[in-house]
């Protein structure tokens, strides 16, 4: 009856999901922690030369590409996240303050969310084209010289700038969506009360709206940070597998890019352990933010 346990029946329902999760989620987690301790593991040959505690970590941490990847990733995190969160907050507040055309703007702002990152990345690259791009055209209109953003021999900062614009553009949609639904759920009484006290609008925004929205802002900020640490597709979309402007290959490499690069070298010694080490480092970084997130979202999410 009600309180009885139905173990066999439950496992019949669970089996399909559990088998897949075991093979494709749980075993890989353990295996990553196994691979990282193998010395010169060769996947195709299936061979390795004993175990090591730190060699793989030391190897990847000393790799010049890793430092580059870490710096690039940190750049993406610390520029794209604050900019897109603040922009999204402002945009959603503007959206929330209008009635006419609200739905229209909302739809427009949502478009990046339903876009293929590769396709739109290519469009962005062309938008930043030295000769034929719209960005330089606008620059010329206002009297600025053309810049080689992403073309052959383009510099690091210009291509990083273009990449950041693309990443911010892609991330706005979801954040606006969440903030707007948060704003719409704020009780109108607070605003009425503020009006009665003739509070100026800017003060209403900073003293009422932002604090009431703070759980959502925290949630979005932290999930965005975690997402930004895993950035890779945007680089592929804009620059292709060369991960940088032509002639400056690998300039925009990220941590995740290193993982995939290592996986693609399936025949070489130590490549998979290197990938495992990189992914574990990534895990350690995101874990810190996830734990913060869990503390914050305890109030928000009810398991």
């Amino acid at each position: 009856m009600l309180e009885e346990k139905h173990n066999i029946k439950a496992w019949l329902y669970l089996a399909p999901a559990m088998i897949l999760l075991l093979v494709f989620t749980f075993y890989p987690i353990f295996n990553a922690f196994f691979l990282v301790f193998l010395r010169d593991f060769n996947f195709l040959a299936g061979s390795f030369d004993g175990f090591t505690l730190t060699e793989n970590f030391v190897y990847i941490l000393n790799k010049p590409d890793f430092k580059k990847a870490l710096l690039n990733t940190l750049m993406i995190v610390f520029v794209s996240v604050p900019v897109s969160v603040i922009l999204a907050l402002l945009i959603s507040a503007w959206l929330n303050s209008i009635k006419k055309l609200q739905g229209f703007f909302q739809t427009i702002f949502f478009l990046p969310y339903v876009t293929n990152a590769i396709a739109i990345g290519m469009a962005f690259a062309f938008l930043f084209h030295r000769n034929y791009g719209l960005i330089n055209t606008i620059f010329n209109w206002i009297g600025l010289p053309s810049i080689n953003w992403v073309g052959l021999g383009a510099g690091y900062w210009s291509s990083m700038f273009a990449l950041l614009v693309f990443i911010i553009w892609s991330g706005l949609a979801f954040k606006i969506m969440v903030f707007l639904s948060g704003l719409q759920s704020i009780d109108k009484q607070y605003y009425d009360a503020a009006k009665v006290d003739s509070t100026p609008r800017s003060r209403i925004f900073t003293k009422i709206t932002v604090p009431l929205l703070s759980p959502m802002i925290a949630y979005i900020t932290i999930t965005s940070i975690i997402g930004a640490f895993k950035e890779y597709t945007a680089v592929i979309g804009m620059f292709g597998v060369r991960l940088g402007p032509a002639g400056n290959d690998g300039a925009l490499v990220t941590i995740v890019a290193l993982v995939y690069e290592a996986i693609s070298r399936s025949g070489s010694d130590g490549a998979y352990s290197e990938a495992a080490a990189a992914s574990i480092i990534l895990f350690a970084i995101t874990l810190v933010f996830t734990l913060i997130n869990m503390q914050v979202s305890k109030k928000r999410v009810h398991f």
Partner: peptide
């Protein structure tokens, strides 16, 4: 709790699998 583990960690072994 396994949701907080980045997918890149699975990919290595999944490719092997």
């Amino acid at each position: 709790s396994s949701m907080m583990i980045p997918g890149e960690m699975f990919v290595i072994t999944n490719f092997m699998t």
